[in-house]
Computed example of a mutant assay.
Amino acid sequence: METVPPRIGGSMEKSNRNCLMWLNHIKTFRQKDRTVLLKIYGDAVSVYEALKLGGEEVDRLVERKIIKLSTVNEIMNDSEDRWFDKLTVDLENKNIKALTLDDPDYPDRLKYIPTAPLVLYMRGKTEFLNYEHGLGIVGSRRPTYYGNLVADEFTKALAVKGITIISGMAMGIDARCHQAALESNGKTIAVLGGGVDICYPQTNYDIYMEMCEKALLVSEYEPGEAHISLHFPSRNRIISGLSDGILVIEAMLRSGTMITVDNALEQNKEIYAVPGRVTDMLSKGTNNIIKQGAALVDSPADIIVNMLGTEAFYKNDDKKVRGSGVNSTIIKKDKLSEKQTKLLGMLGFEPVFIDDLIRANDMNISDTIHNMKALEELGYVRSIEQSYYILSGKNTCI
């Protein structure tokens, strides 16, 4: 894989690879403009030469609304040699690799989607781009406890089965899935809406740094490019493009998650959705796409069997999940007491205060606390904040 554009006498060599990077660099192109120009001229060098030459041919492109006048002005004022030298230095200094549509290692999954990205800038383990099975997981930036729990348990179960987890490293479900994949020693890819050298949002700094070392960051935007809302819809097509299917965990009817779903449908990808309560705004989007034909999944097994087959689901994996006291892929039949079973029946995916459990069960404080700690050690419940409990994945998802 060629990772850095060659430098010829301090200026850009007019190769197809470099011209693809130059086309990607021009910011005023609409997403479809580059694809249309490549179809008209056949290759990136011919596009570069035609646009740089200007004149009547470019005037006709503007008149036919293939490109915008503002794009012509940007090209005329652009110094590709200065840009190229700076990009080369950035790639070298920041250990970022560039992969163009012209390179043999460019992923086949992206080649044939509408408006395939001309360039992928990558930081981290670039070998992660070669995988057999990949699942995109997307959802709300402000998930409920239920959403976080489902994202965590589904991701861990899928990652230990060798499925690469793909998401956008946004707050909420995206970040939870990346973190869960890392905790499972699984593979995960984050597709960013800006340069891979910039952490966004800053609240994900720890995850970002860990992914630079142990996972893969991908973007069609150059190093130093800001992460802005205008970029995110374009980013979403790459998430779905790299994925064999999309899993939706909590989403409103109108959201960036639904844009990813639309892209996936356009790309003929499988859509999975975790159902939610009908009274929850964050369940409106997921429940709606289930009504429209998305596969309802209430267990990672549904996805594992569909993607890998029944045999893969029953195959035991020896990988231990970091940060968990249980192996998330193996269920042990624990003998629970009558009191413990009763306590489990009172819990769900919203936090319940210990005092409410004590009153409802007519149990004394020490007995309740003892049983809750035992259930937590067995992996059936999880303590969040002080004296609040929710169900854990062992009793529900896995």
Score class of each variant (00 low, 15 high):
Tyr200Arg: 10
Met122Tyr: 05
Gly245Glu: 02
Ala181Cys: 08
Arg60Pro: 01
His231Tyr: 05
Asp197Gln: 08
Ser46Tyr: 11
Tyr388Cys: 04
Arg64Ile: 15
Asp317His: 10
Phe128Cys: 13
Glu213Cys: 11
Asp81Ser: 12
Thr257His: 04
Ser255Leu: 02
Leu265Lys: 03
Ser234Ile: 10
Leu336Asp: 04
Tyr314Phe: 11
Lys111Met: 09
Thr35Asp: 13
Ser140Gly: 04
Val248Ile: 11
Ser283Pro: 12
Ile304Phe: 10
Ser229Ile: 14
Val36Gly: 03
Met307His: 09
Gly9Thr: 01
Thr35Phe: 15
Met252Tyr: 01
Asp33Phe: 01
Gly54Val: 08
Tyr272Ile: 05
Ala181Met: 02
Tyr221Thr: 00
Gly293His: 09
Tyr208Val: 14
Met12Lys: 03
Asp317Trp: 05
Tyr41Met: 03
Ile67Arg: 07
Ile331Gln: 02
Asp85Leu: 15
Tyr200Ser: 11
Tyr272Pro: 07
Lys111Arg: 15
Thr260Asp: 13
Tyr221Ile: 03
Leu158Arg: 06
Asn95Cys: 10
Lys161Asp: 05
Ile137Arg: 02
Lys27Gly: 02
Val248His: 09
Lys339Val: 12
Pro223His: 10
Asp43Tyr: 02
Met169Thr: 01
Arg142Pro: 01
Ile137Tyr: 08
His231Met: 03
Glu49Met: 05
Lys315Glu: 13
Thr368Glu: 14
Tyr106Pro: 09
Asp317Asn: 15
Val261Trp: 13
Tyr112Arg: 07
Asp244Ser: 05
Glu385Lys: 15
Ser328Glu: 06
Ile40Asp: 06
Pro300Tyr: 03
Leu118Asp: 09
Gly134Tyr: 14
Ser229Asp: 12
Ser328Arg: 05
Phe29Ile: 11
Ser337Thr: 15
Tyr221Ser: 04
Gly9Ala: 13
Pro223Ala: 12
Lys394Leu: 15
Glu225Leu: 02
Glu127Ile: 06
Gly136Ser: 04
Tyr272Asn: 07
Thr396Ile: 05
Lys39Leu: 05
Leu247Gln: 05
Arg123Met: 15
Val278Tyr: 06
Val381Arg: 07
Arg109Met: 03
Thr3Phe: 06
Val297Cys: 09
Pro223Thr: 03
Leu51Arg: 00
Leu247Ala: 12
Met76Gly: 04
Glu56Lys: 10
Asn93Arg: 12
Phe353Glu: 08
Ala374Pro: 00
Asn148Gln: 08
His178Glu: 06
Phe232Arg: 00
Gln267Ala: 01
Asn316Glu: 15
Leu20Arg: 07
Thr164Val: 05
Lys315Asp: 10
Ser229Leu: 13
